[in-house]
Simulated assay, not measured.
Amino acid sequence: MSHLARAEIVVDLAALRHNVRVLSRLVGEDVAMMTVVKADAYGHGMVAAAGAAREAGSQWLGVATLEEALALRAAGDSGRVLCWLAVPGEDYAAGVAADVDLSAYSVAELDEIAAGVEAVGRPARVQLKVDTGLSRGGAARADWPAVFARARAGEEAGTWRVTGIWSHFSSSDEPEDPANDRQERVFRDALALADEVGLDPEVRHLANSAAAVLRPSARFDLVRCGIASYGLEPAPGLMPDLGLVPVMTARAALAMVKHVAPGDAVSYGRAWIAESETTLGLVPAGYGDGVLRSASNAAEVLVGGKRRPVRGRICMDQFVVDLGGDEPDPGEEVVLFGTGLDGGPTATDWAQASGTINYEIVTRIGGRMTRRHVDSGLDSGMGAGVGAP
């Protein structure tokens, strides 16, 4: 068989393009698509993922930090990019010069952006984030009048153009939570107040992946699709079958196979003891590579077309799976998670086994694993081999 990397992440850019197009068709041509590529595109590789999203027609990219936005510019992206997380003293001049849409939560942030504009000598693009109930980033309701007034004064002075007003749901993955209705009402209040002071933003946006799919009333002018763009459900068990395909496959080469007898213990702390004779496989990846230790004795992998349970505690560099008496050759492929189309586990399966969410599975995997981008042709109607080498 062909040589496999010790442990690697395979990212199918065709699957990403497919997902972006599926989501864009769902929300309709009058709603712009922002593909969120923060946190190294949720572990998929920011520059490559951004390029695929653009190829699929995504008009906007979203990142958390200014450094991420500037990295996109350095890689050659010249389209609309919004960033939204800053601290006092940020080098807004660099963001203004790079034509990045900058988020502001406060009058103080707007003043700092104004200083950046003065340093660069060109106007900025600014979006105002309002807090509608998440109680995280964004202007508190009591501060809206002052923030909006400062924003409008900056427009009148030619310091910036207010290109957007936006907010973020707390519970869009729980569509029956009444907080969703409240937040949408509060957001509409913010838009009405902005209109009163003369702000006319290019885009108004509230919906993340779950809301983009499950709450049409919250789509407004633009939706921000993160995890769904990577083929994973933002609200597992509640999503319609859209045909999204997981973009990431995490796999390794089986390091060794051994027989164990009844009563033999596996891994640290003797947390699993064989009840009968079986065979075990050693997988050369561990929590040092982002394989969550909390999945010990709970997750499954795919070896030889069969799901194999993890036995014992996941270690820093390796973990053990039960092969049930089978004896595959060392070097055979072990799929930790992937598309699920072959019957194997997905990142969502690993999340459920670990007591977390699929976002954490894909953003934390990595460490010493290599990452390779492939193009399966899925979005050209050639779906076989998604995520394959």
Rank of each mutant, 00 (worst) to 15 (best):
S267Y: 05
V386R: 06
N180R: 08
F187V: 09
L82V: 15
G312P: 11
A194Q: 09
A64D: 12
S106R: 03
A139P: 02
G43E: 10
G243I: 08
A64N: 14
V36M: 04
G263C: 05
R293M: 14
L16E: 00
S58H: 03
T132K: 04
I227S: 03
G366P: 05
R368Q: 15
A157L: 12
G281H: 13
G231A: 06
I113H: 04
Y268T: 14
P145H: 09
P328N: 09
R161S: 15
A295M: 10
R372L: 12
H3W: 13
E202V: 12
V247K: 00
S24L: 01
L16V: 00
A252K: 08
A253Q: 06
E275D: 11
T370W: 02
A228T: 10
R150A: 14
A255F: 04
S2R: 11
I365P: 00
M33E: 00
P234V: 10
E300L: 12
E327S: 15
T159Y: 10
M248Q: 14
E184H: 11
V223A: 03
R6G: 13
V96S: 09
R219T: 13
C315F: 08
P328V: 12
P309N: 05
G62D: 02
V283T: 04
A5I: 05
A351Y: 08
I357G: 09
L23N: 03
G164L: 06
G226E: 01
A32I: 01
A52I: 06
R73K: 06
E174H: 10
P123K: 02
A228D: 05
L254Y: 01
R224Q: 14
G281F: 14
Q318L: 10
K258S: 12
G340L: 08
R122Y: 02
L280P: 02
E184D: 11
V335F: 07
V47H: 00
I357A: 12
R54V: 08
T356R: 06
V22A: 01
A194T: 09
L323E: 07
K38I: 03
P240M: 08
R308C: 13
A5D: 15
R73V: 04
L282N: 05
M316Q: 10
A41C: 04
R150Y: 05
A56Q: 00
V63D: 01
L199F: 13
R125N: 12
V100N: 04
E112H: 09
P178G: 03
N19M: 01
Q183C: 02
R161T: 14
A71V: 02
G325H: 07
G338M: 08
L302P: 05
L128H: 03
A235F: 09
P389D: 13
A153H: 10
Y268E: 14
D241N: 14
V260E: 04
S276H: 08
F319I: 13
P330R: 15
G387R: 05
H44E: 01
I165N: 02
L336V: 12
E8T: 13
G158H: 06
N180G: 03
D221S: 11
D40Y: 01
G331L: 08
R372Q: 11
D111A: 13
M33G: 00
G344K: 14
V320L: 15
G290A: 03
A235P: 11
